[in-house]
Design a protein around this nucleic acid. Structure first.
Lengths: 154, 154
DNA sequence: TCGTCAAGGATGACGTGTCATTCATTGCTG
DNA sequence: CAGCAATGAATGACACGTCATCCTTGACGA
């Protein structure tokens, strides 16, 4: 039942490298996006899922599942995006409690303008450093960890 | 010179899985740490590097390199940690511009109390899902990407 | 039908991160 | 030594996240 309490040297190294890569990568991607299109990564992700559906409408709770965000984070973020004219909030006709989020024209333009540059940056800064086998392993690794997280009973 | 502009399906999948794993993992680790010891992950990291040196003292610019944080983030964070009594700021005797950060007794106690649980959580939620080969690959992958980031000329 | 509880969502307070700016000191260089 | 760029660091404004809480509406069994 008892595991070694600390991480091995190899694990320490891998963990630190992973954390550092994360920091730098998201920082670089965020700056690229912001500079090129005034969008944060968070904005971008929201817009991605909104444009996934043809009419550009989605219930907040759906977005929440798409994005895997906390409910209140989403709510706050949508408020800010609304203020900037990227989305708009309406009452839901079929469920009196809920809302419907719609992407605005400005929102569509913003993500259309941002997407190529962002995808290129992800490729350039991340995938160009890896071969196909590594990409597959990464996907596999992430799935395993997600599984572990889902089954964690604490 | 021209790359495919978009990501392949395999890359898309790997990328999304990676992002999702990241979110969930840091959320889970953060909550575990916070619940067990009133420390954020950021607090923890700062304290780790402060306890790396025997006297528990370190210049801000050294911490900055250790942590790979923005200067102002570090400054703000140290301010908050100071307010909570985890570290203390002093003037640097040998460099009139600079400061010296010292870990307090409370800081030492806090990280001593937090470390076992945090390490255990990292093991349980992450490394337990992986085999030795995957750990090595991850380290390798992260190093490659870090290299790519360091050599990015934009 | 009523009462209870779950679901969908908003909000205020507060901690965190970034950007731009500011400031003093130090280290050169002429 | 005067002048000046670079270094070390703090700060204010503002965007972002989390937690706890609150409110309304829907669902459903007694």
């Amino acid at each position: 039942m008892s595991e070694p309490p600390w991480l091995s040297d190899a694990e320490q190294r891998a963990w630190r490298a992973y954390l550092r890569m994360n920091n730098r990568l998201t920082a670089a991607l965020g700056r690229q996006l912001q500079a090129g299109s005034q969008l944060s990564i968070a904005d971008y992700e929201v817009l991605v899922y909104l444009t996934d559906t043809p009419d550009g409408r989605r219930r907040p709770y759906e977005l929440q599942q798409d994005l895997d965000w906390e409910q209140s984070r989403l709510s706050h973020h949508l408020g800010r995006m609304q203020k900037r004219g990227l989305v708009c909030r309406q009452e839901c006709p079929s469920d009196g409690r809920g809302a419907v989020i719609t992407i605005t024209d400005a929102g569509r333009q913003a993500i259309a303008a941002a997407a190529p540059g962002h995808a290129a940056a992800v490729r350039r800064l991340f995938f160009d450093a890896l071969d196909a086998h590594q990409v597959a392993s990464l996907g596999q690794l992430a799935d395993q960890v997600l599984d572990r997280l889902a089954n964690d009973d604490r």
